[in-house]
Amino acid sequence: MAAHEILAATNAVVTLDVAIPGIVWPWLVTVNMWAKSIGTGVIFMLFLLIRKYPDQVEKLRFPTTVVSIIFIHIFLLFTLADLHQPFRMWHIFFYPHLNSAITVGAWMATAFVGLLFLLAFLSFIKKDNAAFDKTLTWVTILAIPVTLYTAGLMSQCTARELWQMPTESAQMIFAALLSGSAFMILMSGSKLNYEAKKTLGVVLGLSAFMSFTLYMSEYIFGPMKAEEVAAVLEYIKGDGPYTVMFWLGQWIAYLLPMVLILLSRVSKSENILKLAAILALAGLWLVKHVWLMIPQLLPMS
């Protein structure tokens, strides 16, 4: 007996329809967002360190620039890989539609890459720290909209009620601060003293706390605002298909790093701080992936 035959009279069941599209934006887009968070996040952290610990950053300017270049290119590569017509990417520059967050984002990301190469030139070829620091201010300012534009893009997806502004903007900024501080903790090695690393740990811990608070707010209060949000969040509740991955992500990206950062401050252990950083980076991928997937599971028509 088919399931729909035993439903109560008030229920309705789709009995004939075409196959609906599956996941439209797959894991490639998750990598895109994750890599961009690191690419802009390390720039935010370098800006912070130059202001707060100018004597510590001498050997960090060029490596940080290289890390940012690498991760921004991973972001660009996966953006390109996700296109169904990647060889037409140039259309964005020659037929731009400036109401689209995709267009604005692509233009800003391109300018950001140009400025990153300028930073690399200033630090590696010219070895001019003053010019580097001055340019970094502008790069940091540009890094903010580069971080945020994906949130704009997601909120332009009228169909996906879960992705709301300004929540997504806040999530993107916190993700960049979380991953930037985590990556800086791991890459700084002996270049930074413990005090500087403690500051990075504070940024990591607070970003994790704020992100977790936002997700839990959505989880608890989102269903009270819109039936689509309620339906989407069912995929991460009970025995939903993404329940395990959602909670795994929350624990690995946010809860465990918060606990580990507190422990590292008590025990003054850099290794615990590094463990928190690794977990935050790995967990962020899971968290972003779940949030990208679940709205796509809902039939739109």
Binding site: H84, L153, C157
Partner: peptide, 20 residues
């Protein structure tokens, strides 16, 4: 001929009316 296949429209349409 102009479409780059980003699927943004597929994601944006609240009616599921667009496909690749």
């Amino acid at each position: 001929e102009r479409c780059i296949g980003c699927a943004g429209c597929v994601m944006a349409c609240p009616y599921g009316a667009i496909y690749i």
